[in-house]
Design a protein around this nucleic acid. Structure first.
Lengths: 222, 222
DNA sequence: GTCTATAGTTGGATAGAC
DNA sequence: GTCTATCCAACTATAGAC
């Protein structure tokens, strides 16, 4: 109804698109549905965005640029690496299970970006953001606990994201929150074996898992 | 053109749907496109299938029921668990990278099944098949190498599938075959630490990773 | 800036001739 | 069983009044 500056209107429309797509799927996020959700008429959307793809790209960007920086400060000091990783993973897992529709939407966006040239940047942006976020967290953890990772940080970040993605997908399908949570906890314990103390000697418990030689030359994809 | 028994025609149409969807994505697999691909007219498809969803379900079933049983026989005897797992994983990874479109389609199907009630069984079938296949392979490996897994087989299968899914998705987006292959190899080595010899004592190398207690009571989802 | 009206496509589904 | 013709719905996008 009211006349708003374009930028603001765009923001409203992106948010509306996000609502519709999260609730009903990416295919349901038609220009019409978004207009209805935002309470404006069809023409307004086309006034603010060149076409539907631009709207979807803006929506995708709104998701990928909202990278929740994990709260490491809430994790108390003095805990072993294993526990810290479990806690960090649990936090990440919480935000996923609390936003089922959004998680599903992000996979739908990934698939769409792989089929439509106009959205080709979306998938890459998604992973760049996730990898960077994981690297950031892992680096922060390493600094906080005075450890270092025995595999390249980019590789480790990739492993974490792969595990989370894999378990998330399975959870979306079978809804078994317990199985996914436990699996990720197991995974966190594995990741803990990839850490060693900064100041000399060996890891706390057993010998760390042998570092695969060929991982050292990995492309730092992010 | 020719008059064929319905069952046969259905098979042709399913194959045509598979071709179109693999090449151009699930959204491109319209009834019209499938009919064109099969070289029949629109009406024929609706004669063989009640509606589009039934066609898609048949297509999905054609994928999930084609579970390539891994060739464990090709793996020579006398190799350590670690190497056998790496080889098995490499084989699995090969079939994925050799069928990029199909892999992407399977994720598109998963997403679709999560949004459309009529396809709700598709996603479950996909995972049931994959988990069962992974369990089968892992059991066969255990028997062949005279080892046992220190976590429930269902849990282990779930871990494997999650890792493969996670890395596959990332690979679909960034195309970095090397990073994904190496990551999965690293993962195979981890999985090897979850094995212990059948006849007494400890694992070959170091102590096996501590078995997480809470994993013992896991639901055997498959 | 926002609205209504409409053009132009695409796709699911059916009817009826052959 | 197979085909053509057609209906109907939903969508993108634009034009033009307000």
């Amino acid at each position: 109804m009211n006349r708003l500056p374009v930028a603001e209107r765009r923001g409203q429309l992106v948010e509306a698109a996000l609502h519709v797509a999260t609730r009903d799927g990416i295919d349901a996020a038609t220009v019409r549905a978004v207009a209805a959700e935002a309470g404006v008429s069809l023409g307004v959307v086309h006034y603010c965005f060149q076409d539907k793809d631009e709207l979807l790209r803006a929506m995708a960007h709104a998701i990928t640029s909202t990278n929740a920086p994990p709260d490491l400060d809430e994790i108390p000091d003095g805990l072993p690496v294993e526990t810290v990783l479990e806690l960090a993973m649990a936090g990440l897992w919480q935000t996923i299970t609390n936003n089922r529709g959004l998680q599903l939407l992000s996979y739908e966006l990934t698939c769409s970006s792989l089929r439509h040239e106009e959205l080709s940047q979306v998938g890459i942006e998604q992973y760049r953001g996730q990898w960077a976020s994981a690297e950031e967290s892992l680096t922060a953890i390493a600094a906080k606990l005075r450890i270092r990772w025995t595999v390249p940080i980019a590789t480790l970040a990739r492993i974490v994201i792969a595990a989370v993605d894999g378990y998330s997908l399975a959870w979306l399908v079978d809804g078994d929150e317990q199985a996914a949570g436990d699996g990720l906890r197991t995974f966190a314990r594995y990741a803990a074996t990839l850490a060693e103390p900064l100041d000399g000697e060996h890891a706390p418990q057993d010998d760390p898992v042998e570092v695969p030689a060929q991982l050292d030359g990995l492309a730092t994809s992010a």
